[in-house]
Write a protein that binds this DNA or RNA. Structure first.
Lengths: 224, 224
DNA sequence: GTCTATAACACGATAGAC
DNA sequence: GTCTATCGTGTTATAGAC
């Protein structure tokens, strides 16, 4: 059996040629223009395919959106859970290692030069900004179980941490993560400008380092 | 001279009747449907006005979006800076008081039953999810100066905190804030569901308490 | 200042040829 | 499986009556 391909490999390689090109183009357009504003025409132009091909392969624009979200969510979670397994391998996990397993993979993926996963966070930001039935469904089914596993790992690392606080702080961590990744993305770079160049938001290692320090301390805070 | 009205008062009270109704409706529609997906028809229907009136009063759909963002950003910053001034009044400020001045007003405003500011965070989430020239301009000119004032206050509260870290952690705080507010908004409530009801995301005081505990500890973290 | 009517165009979806 | 052509609808914007 062949080993699983790295997350940065072509997510849609196994697909039929046109279907694959449409998926790739749709990811790009949905991520940069939003699920609502993206048009089928823009997607098919980029895919060098036809509007009718989308309906043939996916049935509707909405079904295409759901398919894209599903296809792209897998690799991130796999990387995260592998890193979490490594952190938990030797008994009680180290908190910083758990946090790094949570924030490291998405940051790394966002900075890939090529590959589809690069746009994942942007896609998730879109889905969250404008919740819709279809995208919510795809996200919940892919991320809920992973979220609970990480919360459990946080508690394993910090046995004194009440479960309620673990959930709140998991959410805060995800918020900080998504905010900083989308800031460093697509030429926005508000933090870099605001800090007068002090914060290098183009350095993924710096981002992970800063995130881990902040989140780890936040999770260790006393009960409010 | 009359005192400034409370932030929850009608933001558009001074406006001409139709123009005011359009602004109010536009805020609602832009905040819930996104800047790209919102249509003039939906806005004018809600405003009980005419499509042509928008062009008469604002010139274009894009100019209307910019106007809405500008009109709504003021009250939040005023509340925050007033709270920051109180925190800094007696010499060296308390870190928790500075953080509460940052996150308290937006959380409180999001939970207002009426008033336009209730939708502000949602509007900012939209603007950030899909950065555009016009909305960026409106946000930067309203928020950049305030951000730097808060970073300075963080450093004043924690003299050992390097300026670079202060900026990173300010950004992380904003990310956690926006994430949790948009989660508790509009029936999304993912954290509530995910935590099996442990986290009451309908209680603004609980949210502020949790945010302040997490962020305060994160800011006090050692240099990574 | 506010309306109706309409121009000019983009959208998602589908029928039917090949 | 992939195309062209087209239907019906919704969009921004504007011209002109009042």
């Amino acid at each position: 059996m062949a080993p699983a391909p790295p997350a940065s490999a072509d997510l849609f390689a196994g697909e039929k040629a046109t279907r694959s090109r449409i998926l790739r183009a749709a990811l790009e357009v949905f991520a940069t223009r939003g699920f609502e504003a993206a048009s089928l025409r823009e997607i098919t132009d980029r895919a060098e395919a036809n509007v009718a091909a989308v309906h043939y392969h996916f049935g509707s624009r909405e079904a295409l959106a759901q398919e894209v979200l599903r296809a792209v969510a897998g690799p991130l979670n796999r990387l995260r859970l592998e890193a979490l397994d490594r952190a938990c391998a030797a008994g009680r996990p180290d908190l910083a290692a758990v946090v790094e397993a949570l924030v490291g993979p998405p940051v790394t993926m966002s900075f890939e030069a090529t590959g589809e996963s690069r746009l994942l966070i942007r896609l998730l930001v879109q889905a969250r900004a404008l919740p819709r039935e279809t995208t919510n469904q795809a996200i919940f089914e892919q991320y809920d179980a992973m979220a609970v596993r990480f919360v459990d790992a946080l508690i394993a690392a910090e046995p004194g941490l009440p479960r309620e606080e673990a959930f709140w702080r998991y959410a805060f961590a995800i918020g900080a993560l998504m905010y900083i990744v989308s800031d460093s993305d697509q030429g926005y770079h508000r933090l870099h400008r605001l800090s007068g160049g002090l914060c290098d938001t183009d350095d993924p290692q710096a981002i992970v380092r800063q995130l881990v320090a902040f989140i780890t301390a936040g999770i260790r805070a006393g009960r409010p």
